[in-house]
């Protein structure tokens, strides 16, 4: 969305697939999570729990794989070029866009008219995306801490320490619930910003369809 060309080199196939996997996992986890929190219709609890566990593991595997990809997959992370570099540079604000953080925020808040030219991901975007990783692990940690079979595991003291720190299962349950809301809020803003300025990013991210980017024209 931030003025990058929407060609496949920006989102190589493994990244596209992991995005799909994350999306499906999140949707199922949020839906079944709401159901487990308060079953709003009858007859689905067993299925809801099974789905919740399956997609929880899938999400953990995918997100872990995605971290590995950051160091093993190259993609373009600069404007106006198809040169590729390690993907992890998309996660951490780089010298050429670190200072754009405030400018980008100003743009979103209509305090600035011109669109900031940044890399594949803007500085604000990088921070938000990076935050989803600890967020996902944190929600999984909270989930395991309130999951009875985890008591039998060798690493149970690791979860128990957290339970003690937050004051017990109930508080951990509420933390698990609020972390889910954090993910929902992230997703709402993410989906909004990814599409409000045109659907080109979506077409590429989901269907690998390339679009000529208007920004590229500006620079030719």
């Amino acid at each position: 969305m931030s003025g990058h060309g929407h060609y496949r080199e920006a989102h190589p196939l493994p990244l596209m697939l992991s995005h799909w996997s994350n999306l499906i996992s999140m949707i199922v986890l949020v839906f079944t999570g709401f159901y487990i929190h308060f079953p709003f219709f009858a007859g689905f609890m067993g299925a809801a729990r099974s789905l919740h566990f399956f997609f929880m593991y899938l999400l953990l595997v995918t997100i872990t794989a995605r971290i590995i990809m950051a160091f093993t997959v190259k993609d373009t992370n600069q404007m106006g070029t198809k040169d590729r570099d390690w993907d992890w540079k998309n996660w951490i604000p780089q010298a050429e866009n670190r200072h754009q953080l405030i400018e980008t925020a100003k743009y979103y808040l209509f305090m600035r008219k011109e669109h900031v030219i940044s890399a594949k991901n803007g500085a604000l975007q990088k921070i938000a995306y990076l935050a989803t990783i600890p967020l996902t692990y944190a929600i999984a940690y909270a989930g395991f801490a309130i999951y009875t079979p985890a008591h039998q595991w060798g690493i149970w003291p690791f979860f128990e320490a957290g339970l003690t720190a937050v004051g017990g299962d109930m508080n951990m349950r509420i933390i698990h619930y609020f972390l889910m809301w954090a993910i929902i809020l992230f997703t709402m803003i993410h989906v909004y910003l990814a599409n409000i300025y045109g659907v080109a990013p979506t077409k590429l991210m989901f269907f690998w369809i390339e679009t000529e980017d208007p920004h590229d024209r500006y620079h030719q």
Partner: peptide, 11 residues
């Protein structure tokens, strides 16, 4: 389509 891009990157 977003706002008009800056003519030159601040960087």
């Amino acid at each position: 389509k977003g706002g008009p891009p800056e003519t030159e990157k601040a960087y």
